[in-house]
Structures are given as structure tokens and as C-alpha cells.
């Protein structure tokens, strides 16, 4: 199948899933049931940034479904394909919002799910100073946990902020990767849609630090492309949904590097089958240059280890 058709298929799947879940939630809770992410002033940040509208109830979300539909126009051109990627992002936000509407704590440790405004504000300074040189979003599943750990630790040692989505979380745990905000490795959730919580970070950076007005989607995309040095590593077999979410990442200016054979787009969608080279490939694709002074010591050394606690047993 051609790339754009895969994206459209994934976006339609995301739309159907969002519609289904919302319908079920409304049946259960009624249209006036409250919708909100915890500890944010930006409602549902992606929908807020895109439309300028705050979502308060499940009924509002029905309107947001219209936004998703309007973004899916199945023409064989890049622009509608990227828009369909954004549609998937909005659909994912709807799905995640419904999760929070149905359940006060849909995410449990080790997963964080939604990230609070306070955390984003705390990340602002190190992002601006370059202390955090980039944001890696690692999703899917590596062939083994050792490989997963190698990639994640590589980012960690370079000071990057790494978000994990999917089975790679278990692989990281299995390989004893230490996680937590202070360690700059944040497991988001097991569902693909939980990747939206990192998109939400980027979008809120645009709202908070960029001062871009809600509703000006093109300006938000310009901000994320120029100012948020994020990229995506998608490992393991890619579903249409993941590819379509990847198109959303590309729309925001974030390249996608995968270990799968895909129809490559230079600098934006790349195949790197050699896991040892994934970090270097990703940093080059996002234009992240890290000034490193390598100190030849037998343990990892980076700002990411600053908040590490050494427990008795260790």
C-alpha cells in the first residue's frame, strides 16, 4: 500500500476508535460529564492549541470529533497526509481524555500518562539552555530488552529527555533502566494513544514558552518544528495507526526513525536497522548537536543522573 493510504487508514481507525469510545462514555456518564486532564490550565492542549476551544464535557468532545473528520481529506498529497496525522493526534487526545473522564486514575506506576503543567514549566529552562539537548519519543518494541536499554541509556547519557510508549516500557524495566523525571526517562503508557501526552508537552511549550495564541495551529507547528528538538523512534512492526501518528509527529516537525522497512522520506521518515546507530541517526535527523566532553569513567555520567538516589541495596 502506498504511504499516504496507510496514513489515511490509520487516521480513520483513530477516528472510529475515538467515536466508539466517546459514544460508550456518553452512554455511561451522560453528555454533561466533565472532561479534563489533571493539573493543566490548557484543557485538552492539542485541541485547545488547534482550535482555541476548551473542552469541558463529553458533549464538547463530540464537537472535537468534527475537527478530526475535517482533517481527513484523502487526497494523494503531502499536505492532507500531514493533516490526517494531526487528525490522529486529535483523535488520540479525545481517547485519552475519555480515559480520564471514565477513570480518575487511568494510569498507574510506572506509567505517568498525562504530564502536569508544573513539570513542563520545570523542563522549560533546561530545554532553553540546551541542558536537555533533545526529546526522544521511543515507542513500540525492540527485539530484546538489552537493545532497548542500550538505546535508552544512550539518550540518557547524552542528557536527552526520553519518553517511552508501549512494550518498550517493560523491556526497559527488565533491563534495569532507571526511570523517573529526574532521570529524564518517562514511561507514558502502553497504548499507542498515550503518545499524545508527549505531543501535549510540545504543544504546551508553544503555548507557555512560545506565547503562541490558541487557535493558531500553523504557528504552533512552526514553533514545535523550530524550538522543540523532539524526534520519534518507532520500533517493531508498525500498525497503520502508528504510521498515521508518525505523520502527526512529522507535521509538528519531528522526524521518525524506525527499524522497519518503510517508504522513506529524507530527514523525516527514516529506516535504521542497526540499533547501535539509531541514536546517532536520530540526532542527525533532528539536527541535534551535542557538545560532549567524554570523561573516561566506568559509569554513566550525565545531568540525567543528577537526581538519582542510591539505595541501600545498591
Amino acid at each position: 500500500m502506498n504511504l499516504f493510504n496507510i496514513i489515511y487508514t490509520g487516521s480513520n481507525q483513530a477516528l472510529a476508535a475515538a467515536e466508539g469510545l466517546l459514544k460508550k462514555a456518553i452512554e455511561e456518564k451522560g453528555v454533561d460529564h466533565k472532561v479534563a486532564f489533571p493539573e493543566t490550565a490548557y484543557s485538552l492542549p492539542i485541541i485547545y492549541a488547534a482550535t482555541g476551544q476548551k473542552m469541558n464535557t463529553l458533549q464538547d468532545l463530540e464537537g472535537a470529533i468534527g475537527v478530526v473528520k475535517s482533517l481527513i481529506d484523502e487526497q494523494p498529497r503531502l499536505e492532507p497526509a500531514l493533516n490526517a496525522g494531526l487528525a490522529t493526534a486529535v483523535a488520540a487526545e479525545i481517547i485519552e481524555a475519555v480515559k480520564y473522564a471514565l477513570n480518575e486514575t487511568p494510569y498507574e506506576a510506572p506509567c505517568t500518562g498525562h504530564i502536569s503543567d508544573a513539570i513542563i514549566r520545570s523542563l522549560g529552562v533546561p530545554l532553553v539552555t540546551g541542558d536537555i539537548p533533545g526529546v526522544a519519543v521511543v515507542l513500540g518494541e525492540c527485539p530484546d530488552s538489552e537493545t532497548a536499554a542500550k538505546v535508552i541509556k544512550d539518550y540518557q547519557s547524552k542528557g536527552l529527555l526520553t519518553f517511552l510508549v508501549g512494550k518498550i516500557i517493560d523491556q526497559a524495566i527488565e533491563a534495569n533502566v532507571k526511570m523517573g523525571l529526574e532521570l529524564r526517562v518517562i514511561p507514558l503508557g502502553y497504548d499507542v494513544t498515550s503518545v499524545i501526552h508527549v505531543v501535549s508537552v510540545a504543544i504546551r511549550a508553544s503555548l507557555i514558552f512560545g506565547g503562541v495564541e490558541p487557535g493558531k495551529l500553523a504557528e504552533h507547528m512552526e514553533y514545535t518544528k523550530n524550538r522543540v528538538p523532539a524526534f520519534v523512534n518507532a520500533f517493531g512492526p508498525l500498525s497503520e495507526l502508528v504510521v498515521s501518528a508518525g505523520a502527526g509527529a512529522i507535521a509538528l516537525g519531528f522526524p521518525v526513525i524506525t527499524d522497519q522497512t518503510v517508504l522513506e522520506v529524507p530527514t523525516l521518515l527514516l529506516t535504521q536497522k542497526d540499533y547501535d546507530k539509531v541514536p546517532a541517526t536520530s540526532l542527525e535527523a533532528r539536527g541535534i548537536k551535542i557538545k560532549i566532553t567524554e570523561i573516561p569513567i566506568p559509569v554513566g555520567f550525565a545531568a540525567a543522573f543528577e537526581g538519582e538516589r542510591v539505595r541501600k541495596d545498591d
Binding site: 517508504l263 522513506e264 522520506v265 529524507p266 542527525e284
Partner: peptide
Amino acid sequence: VVNSHIDPMGTLKPLADVIKAGVLR
């Protein structure tokens, strides 16, 4: 636009890629 960790320089591969992917029709 060639990622030095993936492809060699001096080829038409990036052009072939964007045509295959459909970015350029």
C-alpha cells in the same frame, strides 16, 4: 538530506525516496 548514518552520499536515492513515498508525485 542524506542521513550520514544510513546512506552514502552522491546518489539520487533521496529523490527516489520522495517519489516513492508520494511527497513528490
